[in-house]
Design a protein around this nucleic acid. Sequence first.
DNA 1: GTCTATACCTAGATTATCTATATACATAGA
DNA 2: TCTATGTATATAGATAATCTAGGTATAGAC
Lengths: 112, 112
Amino acid sequence: MTDLRGGSTQVLVLSLLAEEPMYGYQIAKELERRSEGYFDFKEGTLYPLLHRIEKEGLVRGEWQVVEKGPSRKYYSITPEGRKVLEKSAAEWTTFSQRLLKILGQETEPAST
Amino acid sequence: MTDLRGGSTQVLVLSLLAEEPMYGYQIAKELERRSEGYFDFKEGTLYPLLHRIEKEGLVRGEWQVVEKGPSRKYYSITPEGRKVLEKSAAEWTTFSQRLLKILGQETEPAST
DNA sequence: GTCTATACCTAGATTATCTATATACATAGA
DNA sequence: TCTATGTATATAGATAATCTAGGTATAGAC
């Protein structure tokens, strides 16, 4: 396991940023959209996370002024961030498969 | 999501106890065995969890004296526990599928 | 006599997440 | 004009799951 509890937010965020730079609000909306409303990240989760992974060097943030409306802070993934993403995506995949396998033990057995 | 971060231990434990009553040490070993060493629950996680879900009425604990070696506290799942298991197993399944789907976005696309 | 396995327990620290609140600009409606 | 909603960021404080690290006790192996 190695500390897989929670931490799913990070891998999801990195996985989006691996496609293209995004700003916080956009990340939240995009994850919500892709999951059909399932993932609903709170601001109190997302922004501190972005600050943390920026400090850790996994992403780089850059302010961008918008004509109308508040400025946006665009985050782009770094090479280090891609490494972490690759590793933790693999870990989450393993974890999910292991979990589902054990939970699956007690699904309807194929008519014994 | 509704608070899915962590909490995987509980659903795993309940899922084992849905098969048959087990004691703490046995649960740890069994999960380790079934996951080929992947799940490795620490005592500091497992025992407090068992106490909590017993207090919540999801399991019932019963001491059993063994001829040789320390006594064991066998836990059996309650009807309430089965309800919770069913619900959280479904939630974990959804969560895993959603997660894997989004992480899968950036796997090798089928040779475009 | 010490080590390992079995079997339970708890205190304290860490940390991810949530709740709640704040700021600020734009627009639409009453 | 006032208010509500959407956009966009931010932080303080609470909650809770997990880990670390210790402790007790029995039994068998070397």
